[in-house]
Design a binder for these strands. Structure first.
Lengths: 238, 238
DNA sequence: GGGAACAAAAAGTATGACGTTTAGGTCTCA
DNA sequence: TGAGACCTAAACGTCATACTTTTTGTTCCC
């Protein structure tokens, strides 16, 4: 059993159990007992109870008297919880999760870019241009890690500049996706030059306040990301 | 002080504190002490600790030794947590929250409708048509409550039929928004006939597998929702 | 066979003790 | 005077234990 490291006992137990549950190690309806968990991890019931309460708030499990802690159906999980996302991306569910999130991205980012074109501050425009230039500068010569950093920063700025807090909070999700793409997939060569150009153009459109163009070009980026995913991890539904 | 009702002590304390914090009653950086809370609610420290842990997992607060439990900046909150959404919709933050969520809807639902046209099962198509017909049937004669029920069901089916779990999980959010619109705004008259027609057309497009049309029409619905919001609660940023 | 009383199981709550971290004051020494 | 080492106390973190409450399954009686 892989045991996630943690600063304190609470985090340790939570990460281990969360990882196991999201990985499907305990199928829906499985029953855990607090005493058992306490024994297994050699921690007090207090710690276990707090962990259970948190997992309950993520809707991963449901605690009922006289029956124990039962694992909920996946449809009930709070799939937007950053921890749940992280666990699923780290486990067997990774491909499925990556697809869901990329589709979400493809819906959100174009709209966010359009809003950014309307709402971005001069500072944000400058930052965006800087990110785009950084991407250009590192797009050749196998500097994938540096490129990734600029890519993440770029999308984060767009989401923040949209002025919508729900969009802004997806910055971490996008970062996860991009990181995953760079690290978990075969990427011997440099990033797609067309994609780099599109990013530069989005920065332009935002700077010029051209919402329609910013949205349209971002939609192209999204389409590219989806296509890439289809090549590397075909949708099982088709 | 308004104190939310709860099945057990944990829920009671959590709801009360969560509501207070999201309402801005404790500004960023405020410090709570577990002992104080225990006294104030007359509950044991165990209960308070579990509540704190859950609020910590929502990133509403941060607990540090020798300091206490400090309220985080709003930018750090897990704004996708259903409880956080509910609290904010119930409190002073309502207008702002409603706008964020509606914008999110406007980004997500069109894409979801497009996917639904591709992935919906015959049962889901039937259900969708039924909802649309229900909306038509209750669109006149001040039957707002019935209309609302069908409206919610309609959007839920679309989100589910998209086959994307991230979209599906937004069903509750949409339900909240629609309910809020019906209950918290002046609605003497019947719903907009044009909107009703659009819903019928979306059902059609999905049934026929016409993804582009389903997406386009849903986008129209979204535009309408945003416009409505602009009239009733103008964006303070402009 | 059905329903009511009962017993046990497991979570929920309360309490007290101790460990651990750390902000913040104090003291020393250059 | 000021900078750094040291100490103290405050608040959370963890543990152990006892007790309460709810719920389920069983048994017993009609």
């Amino acid at each position: 059993m892989t045991t996630a490291g943690g600063q304190d006992l609470h985090t340790l137990v939570l990460d281990t159990l969360g990882l196991a549950i999201t990985a499907g190690e305990y199928p829906r309806g499985s029953v855990l007992r607090t005493d058992e968990i306490a024994q297994r991890f050699d921690v007090s019931r207090s710690v276990v109870r707090e962990v259970i309460r948190v997992m309950e708030s993520m809707r991963l499990v449901e605690s009922r008297r006289r029956v124990g802690v039962t694992v909920r159906a996946i449809e009930e999980w709070n799939v937007y919880d950053p921890r749940v996302i992280r666990w699923r991306l780290a486990g067997a569910d990774r491909p499925r999760q990556l697809r869901s999130l990329t589709v979400l991205r493809s819906a959100v980012e174009p709209v966010a870019a359009g809003l950014a074109a309307r709402n971005a501050t001069p500072e944000q425009c400058a930052e965006l241009t800087e990110c785009a230039l950084g991407m250009v500068a590192t797009s050749r010569g196998h500097r994938l890690e540096e490129y990734l950093r600029h890519d993440i920063a770029f999308h984060r700025v767009v989401l923040n500049a949209s002025g919508n807090e729900m969009f802004a909070r997806l910055g971490d999700v996008v970062a996860e996706i991009l990181t995953g793409r760079t690290h978990h997939q075969v990427m011997f060569d440099d990033p797609d030059p067309a994609a780099v150009t599109l990013h530069v153009q989005v920065a332009e459109a935002v700077r010029e306040g051209d919402a329609a163009r910013a949205e349209a070009i971002t939609r192209e980026i999204a389409v590219g990301a989806l296509a890439e995913l289809d090549v590397l991890a075909p949708d099982p539904a088709h």
